[in-house]
């Protein structure tokens, strides 16, 4: 545990000096806020860039606050996932490739402590930035559309946070397999796309799929009731994370750490 703390603290300081604690929150805020704000100002924007041709009839749809938060989440699901893959792709793979890992792992470091410290430090960074981004989105949506009850909103934020945790955990998993950061990022994104596409193709059968968390939590925002599917997909996500972490540790143990 003491080793884990040492490693974790070191990771946090590293992310901080890397300015990750500045740009990751900023980028996620931008991603979460962009679509709701753009949609609200769309008529003005269209007007400014020359307007519609004479006679064209353009009916702007009426968005609710929940529609707006769906826009934020859909952006986070694509661009947000990309950002997570980017900041985590080299966390272990890069250290192994450069040789830094050689110096660290030759000390009597427990492998679980090494992997879990990497995972936890990125998790704290990602979740803190994501929650901040969601609060910004909630604030703007409240001003521009209608206010979503903060309690429901936080429950939804927490649940979708599980999905982002899974994205990070998948990346950590590939980090223990590959030495090339690019390959890690590619595999992570490919896996996430596969899960998402699979779940939307077989939506009925895969109701408990982790990627359905967002759909189920929108339903929750509409109805105010936590459905069994929502609980189901949340539990699947947590279990998937645990299994991936155990597998990562197991794989890392069997790897050679030099050359």
């Amino acid at each position: 545990m003491r080793q884990w703390k040492t490693l974790f603290k070191n990771e946090m300081v590293g992310h901080f000096r890397d300015r990750k604690w500045i740009w990751v929150p900023l980028v996620l805020i931008l991603i979460a806020v962009m679509d709701p704000v753009m949609n609200y100002y769309l008529p003005q924007i269209l007007d400014k860039v020359g307007g519609l041709p004479e006679g064209a009839v353009f009916q702007m749809p009426e968005f609710t606050g929940i529609d707006a938060i769906q826009m934020s989440i859909s952006q986070l699901s694509s661009l947000g996932v990309l950002i997570i893959a980017l900041i985590s792709m080299g966390t272990i793979a890069g250290e192994r490739k450069s040789g830094i890992a050689e110096l660290i792992l030759v000390k009597p470091v427990a492998y679980p402590a090494y992997i879990l410290s990497k995972w936890a430090a990125l998790l704290v960074l990602i979740i803190a930035s994501y929650v901040l981004a969601m609060l910004f989105a909630w604030y703007y949506i409240g001003i521009l559309y209608d206010t979503i009850p903060i309690g429901d909103f936080l429950v939804m934020t927490a649940l979708y946070g599980l999905w982002l945790t899974l994205v990070l955990t998948v990346s950590i998993f590939y980090n223990t397999i590959f030495k090339s950061s690019g390959l890690v990022a590619f595999s992570t994104i490919a896996t996430i796309i596969l899960i998402s596409v699979g779940s939307s193709l077989f939506g009925e059968k895969l109701s408990y799929s982790p990627s359905n968390i967002s759909n189920h939590s929108f339903e929750f925002l509409h109805t105010g009731e936590i459905s069994s599917s929502l609980i189901g997909s949340a539990v699947t996500t947590v279990i998937a994370c645990l299994i991936l972490l155990l597998l990562s540790i197991y794989i890392f143990r069997t790897k050679e750490h030099a050359g």
Partner: peptide, 29 residues
């Protein structure tokens, strides 16, 4: 590993750390 000290041929350090930080970090590990 706890009985052994090792210096690779081309040691690579985290470039953002200072020598002091890295040594204390290594010691704590």
């Amino acid at each position: 590993r706890k009985f052994i000290g090792y210096l690779p041929q081309y040691p690579v350090f985290p470039s953002w750390m200072t020598a002091k930080e890295f040594l204390i970090f290594s010691g704590e590990l």
